[in-house]
Amino acid sequence: MTGVEARPIVLVVEDEPLLRLFAMDMIEEAGFEVLDARNTAEALTMMETCAGIRVVFTDVDMPGGADGIALATSIRRQWPKIAIVITSGKPWPIGIRLPEDAVFFSKPYRQDRVIATIRDMAG
């Protein structure tokens, strides 16, 4: 085992450009490789084409149909090993269960806690 181990990949899904940039920057700083998607559809395409994604960091409220909760649910179904971090400006909706191995952060979130969670998930 001499090869350099690839850095774990985190996929950031956020429609708001500034917040996307901020999240990518924060996660990159923490030593991860970062991919980004602007909506659920883009995110799912990336999931299918890129094998190394370990954590998906997604917003809930995004335009264009399916939201972050739906995305989290389909990821959990298709890629059970990928961890999920969900973030939203709204409180977590009452009566909906958080998918297994998913963590919710209300916006604005504490960067150190988000990073600690992602580190933990990426193993």
């Binding site: 901020f22 920057d25 709204k90 979130y109």
Partner: peptide
């Protein structure tokens, strides 16, 4: 109310992002 609050919190997040950058 929910919509306004959601926007307000996104705005707080952006303030946080700008400050952090």
């Amino acid at each position: 109310n929910g919509e306004i609050s959601h926007r307000l919190k996104n705005m707080l997040s952006m303030v946080q992002a700008i400050a952090s950058q």
